[in-house]
């Protein structure tokens, strides 16, 4: 009892001293609470469906950020990992009769292999050349899928994939918790030494090499990690939709991921997640004007990127928080002095 009380007190102390001091952390905390508590407010299947799909695409957008935002390896064919994850999970599920609990991680492992297959030839490429090369891979895979319809279902895809569960709330928590866990894992990776090296590779690869770091290994690691998380998203998508089809590999899917990540703010992990949670439900909301839906959506994205070139979430964070000029610690914008070193913030 005493031990439990100790941990409860410790938890509240952390919340008070580490979370409540920064508005952005409060927002993240509220995001967790709202997502986990949503079924207590509504169990509307339509809303649940939108949140589930949003969660899946949030994992996908964050995985792109891990590779392209942090390491600067501009990937314009991210749908490849998503599609490989979806098709692999579906094939494993349909032919080996492995339930989704096994087929999704296995599909993600296949997506890691895809990451390596793409990563190795792309090691010598940079910028536009890299972007164009990565763009080609999902198109090549689509060609393979159409060429082998007996295994892949051709243009109709693989249907009849089993669901995780038939429970609405069970599905909700499965997808939302997976998204939250993978987001935290990705964020922790980028916050670690590996993440710093990813950052450094993007800023000056030559300098990183000169420091004795094997950048090839780290770039391949970035491709593999990104492939793994995108593969998880693809597997979840296939089992939720009960179909893995060529649409998972379409160019529009690759570009949508880039739009989400840039809209929210690249090299943050939370930016692309926030963007998906704004843009995906917003596109659904625009169904009230079906004829102008896509046009309004495009206009919103354009306006935001025009006035907030670093991304919406970056912009909001800069409005509600300031960085201490002396110790570089972030503080609430309302503070006059730094919460750590007490230096003036004006």
């Amino acid at each position: 009892m005493g031990l439990a009380l100790f941990y409860v007190k410790k938890f509240f102390k952390i919340v008070r001293n580490e979370v409540l001091v920064l508005p952005s952390r409060v927002v993240v905390g509220l995001f967790f609470i709202v997502l986990l508590g949503l079924p207590l407010i509504t169990q509307d299947p339509y809303i649940v469906r939108i949140v589930i799909l949003t969660s899946i695409f949030a994992i996908l957008a964050a995985s792109w950020d891990l590779l392209s935002g942090f390491t600067g390896q501009m990937n314009f064919g991210h749908a490849l990992f998503f599609g490989v994850g979806a098709y692999s999970s579906a094939l494993i599920n349909l032919h080996a009769h492995i339930p989704p609990w096994g087929s999704v991680p296995l599909g993600a492992v296949v997506a890691v292999l895809a990451g390596l297959i793409v990563g190795i030839p792309c090691l010598r490429l940079k910028h536009t050349y890299l972007a164009l090369t990565t763009l080609a891979f999902p198109i090549i895979l689509t060609g393979i899928i159409f060429a082998l319809p007996q295994y892949t279902g051709g243009e109709f895809g693989l249907s009849g994939v089993t669901r995780f569960t038939n429970s609405l709330i069970g599905n909700y928590y499965l997808h939302v918790v997976t998204m939250l866990v993978t987001a935290v894992v990705m964020w922790k990776i980028t916050d670690s030494n590996t993440g710093i090296i990813f950052h450094a590779i993007r800023e000056d690869e030559l300098a990183v090499k000169a420091s004795g770091i094997n950048t090839t290994r780290y770039k391949l690691l970035a491709f593999s990690l990104s492939g793994f998380f995108a593969g998880i998203a693809g597997g979840l998508y296939a089992h939720y939709m009960r179909i893995a089809g060529p649409s998972t590999l379409e160019v529009s899917m690759s570009f949508m991921v880039v739009i989400w990540a840039i809209f929210g703010g690249a090299a943050t992990i939370y930016g692309p997640i926030g963007a998906v949670f704004i843009l995906y439900p917003l596109l659904e909301f625009f169904r009230i004007w079906p004829e102008y839906r896509t046009m309004i959506f495009a206009a919103v994205v354009l306006v935001i990127l025009l006035y907030m070139p670093e991304g919406l979430i970056h912009w909001i964070r800069d409005k509600i928080e300031t960085e201490c000029p002396r110790c570089k610690i972030r503080n609430a914008a309302t503070r006059k002095t730094c919460r750590v070193c007490t230096a003036g913030l004006d």
Partner: peptide
């Protein structure tokens, strides 16, 4: 009327169908 947008986005089509059913 439900716009499935199915040529561009398959997930959109399922959302439109779910909306028809539940909303």
């Amino acid at each position: 009327k439900a716009d499935s947008n199915e040529f561009i986005n398959v997930a959109d089509a399922t959302n439109a169908m779910e909306r028809l059913m539940t909303q």
